[in-house]
Amino acid sequence: MRLTKLSRNLAIALGLGLLASTAAMAAEGATARHHVKEVEFEFEGPFGTYDRGALQRGYQVYKEVCAACHSLSYIAFRNLADKGGPEFSEAQARALAAAVKVQAEPNDKGETTDDAGAPLTRPAVLADKLPSPFPNDNAARANNGGALPPDLSLIAKARMDGPHYVYSLLTGYDEKAPGSFHVPDGKYYNPYFEGWAIGMPKPLSNNGVTYSDGTKATIEQQAHDVVTFLSWTAEPKMEDRKRMGFGVLIFLLALAGILFAAYRRVWKDAH
């Protein structure tokens, strides 16, 4: 009898768990896109942390490749020096910022453009957000054949299986379209993209960037690095979170242990 009771309790717990997990499965449904590639990232799992080298290289890939079309509007230059992030030194972050021009504040005469009509700019400082490649969404569409390049700050969390999805997409251009599939003009075949026809041309090429740390810049390496970087931009507090999590769980387990002892003690004579 005891056993059946236990199994029943387990069943109800499992049932509720199943109910909860169906939500996570929901978005998969009947999508056409291929399953994401099986790759492993250092930041996965409860003990995973971001690879600093990959984060710094990933920023380089973003800056030299992605930033031509994609904004990263939730990231400021100061974040590049944040603990748990790429951890550039403050001086490095300052230099990275100073190398980039951002829209300046109105000058003393209240002007926002120079005599030629170009927007006034100044070198960025740590507090500045990374500049967007286009002044607004309409300009972005107009320059990209009508497609809007999404902001990448949260891309790793805004897609199912985010990091794997972005990796698969970036490395998925070389597969051949099935004969029956017609790729529309101005689009490119990528089976990891919903609908298979993507507006973004193949962004990465072998040695498309030159890594200063000597890492060989294969497409896979660049994809790995930029995915690591974008995972950090989406979840910049991940390392803090996991570290604190272990402390909290150890504390709670100890508290549960002592409460269990107290519980048994109190109830010893009452059963």
């Binding site: 409860p46 897609r159 985010g162 979170r241 999590g245 769980l249 709670l252």
Partner: peptide, 23 residues
Amino acid sequence: FVILFAGFVFFEPDFFGNPDNYQ
């Protein structure tokens, strides 16, 4: 119960969430 709760908060914080809500 809080141990289960903390497990989600610290190790799977987006388990119950939907990726679309980060757009």
